[in-house]
Design a protein around this nucleic acid. Structure first.
Length: 549
RNA sequence: AGGGGCGUAGCUCAGUGGUAGAGCAGCGGCCUUUUAAGCCGAAGGUCGUGGGUUCGAUCCCCACCGCCCCUACCA
């Protein structure tokens, strides 16, 4: 038998280190903190005492295993029982006990590890008296290790014939109910560890999330990008329009802002000669929470010198197709009731999209020329609103006076955004709502900017980066002058200074990793793809009790 | 922030204007190939919290708390 231990540690090691500590008094094992269900909590602490009294270390330090439950199930799922007998495959396996059927002097249990479960069979005359006493004292949720060989039961289930049993760790609190699993969404989010134990699909979502990030890294690494990390605490929040979280540094006695975007720092790196950079990390926005918004969310942002937004669009099409294929096995991905086809992306300019999705009942759809003319977007919005109010559809409500480009953006969001179910590249955003994007040479009212929409969600935002410091300064000052909650309050002079040192023509983009994960895992809520989504802290006795101690 | 929904045993859920039930988990007992194991027995609850109506409220009414959904906010 081989062990996985690279250090060549002998299998005898477990036996060579018997537990010698004098069994402690029951009272020593009792936790001062109490958790529900109280009776089971106390019961299990008593059992832990009894396990210790049998001579087992209540908190042993290691277990040398040869296979995980998942690996065995994977490897031997098709091997017939007779073959297993002749192989006499000896294994050492650790896992959490998730089912338990005791029948007098023998019993079955399932051990869960690496996301899969394997059955074990424990017989008193095989494991001996103390081993079987230990088996008796186990509860669902306990971690144990077993040593034995593979066989198949009467009902042909791959199982481990246990010769030796090792106690690894006690679950003082019970697992979620065994056949309904854990369905209370609040508990699933607050106590994600239980969700991960009880719900294989939930575990799979997070495994997939990790694979998505891995694939993205591979994609960019292969293209000569360098992964970097830039500050998350900013003296001046910038790079997006959002309200920031404020924090304070004591020694410097200054307020700092949790970043709302890494954009301005990544572009400083482009100035510094890092021509291809990406960063995958958190942004923080002090705004609402919804199925598509978590106050902290993960963004991939990348910058590529000497390219423009058209290059990025092509690259994105390729990247999304590749991701869908490598992650789900197909370019067609089920999301809710929709079948998302990532084999190609429709491309529409924002003004085209308004024309295309203009409701039939609202009269003549505005032409691109009409939308481009001064006042045209506002006029179209008014006509749309008139229809929407009659039809009971959402209408566009402007807070305060808007510029032409802002009307265009508002109209698009109101009427077209959630209709973009199939992967769509929406391009040519108004300059008025794109302060960091380069203008189109033939039409300064528009910028070389695009966003990718899938299932009505914005998942990416990219553009040819504005690298003219004079124009950038004008745009910043205009934003500040316009005011509003989300507008920057302060000019980032160092960013302008960096641009003055010369930034090559560059294209950059941000991709929302959480939303991308939602799409590729068919998750309806962003909370399903974030381990610990922000929730209101638990109130009431149990938590305050827990924090007091 | 507004609208809707939910909150009953540890878990999943029934239920009624007369102070509550099932299955699973837990506890005691029997059982050496079970898998939602089975059988016998005992236990488990401030019916989210606080007020009101009522002779009497878990149920009806009001407020609050928590979660979910929709809307709003959201580059």
């Amino acid at each position: 038998m081989r062990t996985r231990d690279a250090g060549g540690c002998s299998l005898l090691r477990d036996e060579a280190r018997p537990y010698t500590r004098t069994p402690s008094l029951l009272s020593e094992r009792i936790l001062p903190l109490q958790f529900e269900p109280r009776d089971q909590f106390e019961q299990r602490q008593k059992k832990l005492e009894q396990i210790q009294a049998l001579g087992y270390d209540p908190y042993p330090r290691e277990f040398r295993w040869t296979d995980t439950p998942a690996a065995l199930v994977e490897q031997y799922s098709q091997t017939p029982g007779a073959e297993l007998e002749t192989m006499n495959k000896e294994v050492r396996v650790a896992g959490r006990m998730v089912s338990f059927r005791l029948m007098g002097k023998a019993g079955f249990a399932h051990l869960q590890g690496a996301g899969k479960r394997i059955q074990i069979y424990v017989k008193k005359d095989v494991v001996g008296e103390p081993g079987f006493q230990l088996f008796h004292l186990l509860d669902l949720g306990d971690s144990i290790g077993v040593e034995g060989h593979l066989f198949r039961t009467k009902t042909n289930e791959l199982s481990i014939w246990v010769e030796k049993i090792f106690f690894l760790s006690k679950a003082l609190l019970p697992l979620p109910e065994k056949w309904h699993g854990l369905s209370d969404v609040e508990v699933r989010y607050r106590q994600r560890y239980l969700d991960l134990i009880a719900n294989a699909e939930s575990r799979q979502v997070f495994v997939t999330r990790a694979r998505i990030i891995q694939e993205l890294r591979r994609f960019f690494d292969a293209r000569g990008y360098i992964e970097v990390e830039t500050p998350m605490m900013h003296p001046i929040p910038g790079g997006a329009a959002a309200r920031p979280f404020i924090t304070h540094h004591n020694t410097l006695d200054i307020d700092l802002y949790l970043r709302i975007a890494p954009e301005l720092y990544l572009k400083r790196l482009t100035v510094g000669g890092f021509d291809r950079v990406y960063e995958i990390n958190r942004n923080f926005r002090n705004e609402g929470i919804s199925t598509q918004h978590n106050p902290e969310f993960t963004m991939l942002e990348f910058y590529e010198a000497y390219s423009n937004y058209r290059d990025l669009m092509d690259m994105n099409e390729q990247m999304f197709r590749l991701l869908a294929e490598n992650i789900t096995g197909s370019t067609t991905v089920k999301y809710g009731d929709a079948e998302l086809d990532f084999s190609k992306m429709q491309r529409l300019s924002m003004r085209e999209a308004i024309g295309k999705y203009w409701p039939a009942g609202a009269g003549q759809a505005p032409t691109r020329e009409k939308l481009a003319a001064p006042g045209g977007a506002q006029e179209a919005t008014n006509r749309y609103n008139l229809w929407a109010k009659g039809a009971g559809a959402p209408y566009a409500a402007a807070k305060g006076p808007l510029q032409d480009g802002q009307w265009t953006g508002l109209l698009f969001e109101t009427m077209a955004e959630d209709q973009l179910v199939q992967p769509t590249i929406l391009y040519d955003f108004p300059t008025d709502i794109s302060p960091l994007s380069k203008q189109k040479p033939e039409d300064p009212s528009l910028t070389e900017r695009f966003e990718i929409y899938v299932a009505g969600m914005e998942v990416a935002n990219g553009f040819s980066e504005l690298n003219d410091p004079a124009e950038q300064e004008r745009r910043f000052l205009k934003q500040i002058a316009q005011g509003g909650d989300e507008a920057p309050k302060q000019l980032d002079a160092d960013y302008i200074r960096a641009l003055c040192h010369g930034m090559p023509p560059t294209a950059g983009e941000g991709i929302g990793i959480d939303r991308l994960t939602m799409l590729l895992t068919d998750s309806p809520s962003i909370r399903d793809v974030i381990f610990f989504p922000l929730l209101r802290p638990e109130s009431g006795e149990s938590s305050s009790e827990a924090h007091r101690a």
